[in-house]
Design a protein around this nucleic acid. Structure first.
Lengths: 145, 145
DNA sequence: CGCGTATTGTTACAATTGTAACTATCATGA
DNA sequence: TCATGATAGTTACAATTGTAACAATACGCG
């Protein structure tokens, strides 16, 4: 059961796509909204959750470690996009909550970023390819836990 | 011409697959061969080229900047995996050449790494999915230049 | 030729990151 | 209750990285 050449091509293409597109998207978000892609992701997760999230929940839902979450949230708080709140029921716990400004920034930045994803990624795929990639990569990701 | 939900799912799955798999593969190569994934990639490119490569060629063929190539090659030279050679025809130019030890390390590490790609990635895809992903992502990557 | 410009690769410095400790709090069970 | 261990989040320190400037060489046009 060796690794096929085609599978290796697929893997290398994935690496290249990731590298180039995330670099471009991060640069665009920073240039147009002073918003690193990592911050955008945090805002999306907090909005999706529709409630403040504990730091470890945020770490689980993003691709960041707890240490990274501590640092990202600290900087985002300094920028006014989120606030930290102590959990009244667990003295160790800290919540990160999106602010009104965070919501405003996300709403604006999302237009840019979703357009980026469309232009750089989705526009080059037909419906069948999109469906296949979504299903197949979700399976790979699920197996990686 | 909005971004479809499925395309967004595909993009997020790609991000997650990349993050989890590269982290795992890098850890495995370091643990078993004391070889960072970045070094592995350099060795592969030099072997594929079948000749020494100028630093800027190496940067073009990998996903690293010139500055990163300078640093990676310096460390790999200290580890004995490559050597740097001045270009006799261009006083500015420097070649990176793989050493015998580099070839030996690559041959050994490749077994580990290709098995990793098979187990973590390829094993979860059928032939049709693999073909689709390879073709589609290659197209996306090509458009990103 | 000779001057200005472009390219190559490196490096200084600041900023960022990873790793491993560390503090504080909670949960469990004798 | 109180010892023991687990969990949450943070932080110190070292290592890594990005950015912009740098030296050296090549190129191109008058």
């Amino acid at each position: 059961m060796g690794l096929s050449d085609r599978a290796l091509v697929a893997w290398r293409a994935l690496l290249e796509v990731h590298q180039r597109l995330t670099a471009d998207m991060d640069a665009t978000l920073r240039a147009e909204h002073a918003l690193p892609l990592a911050w955008y992701d945090v805002l999306v997760r907090l909005t999706d959750a529709a409630r403040p999230l504990r730091m470890h929940e945020l770490a689980d839902r993003t691709l960041f470690s707890r240490t990274e979450c501590t640092r990202i949230v600290a900087r985002m708080e300094a920028a006014g996009l989120v606030v930290k709140e102590k959990d009244p029921e667990d003295g160790r716990g800290v919540y990160a909550a999106i602010t009104d400004e965070g919501r405003t920034v996300l709403r604006t930045a999302a237009r840019t970023h979703l357009a980026d994803i469309e232009r750089s990624f989705a526009a080059h795929l037909n419906d069948e390819e999109t469906t296949t990639i979504a299903a197949a990569l979700a399976r790979v990701a699920a197996a990686a836990h």
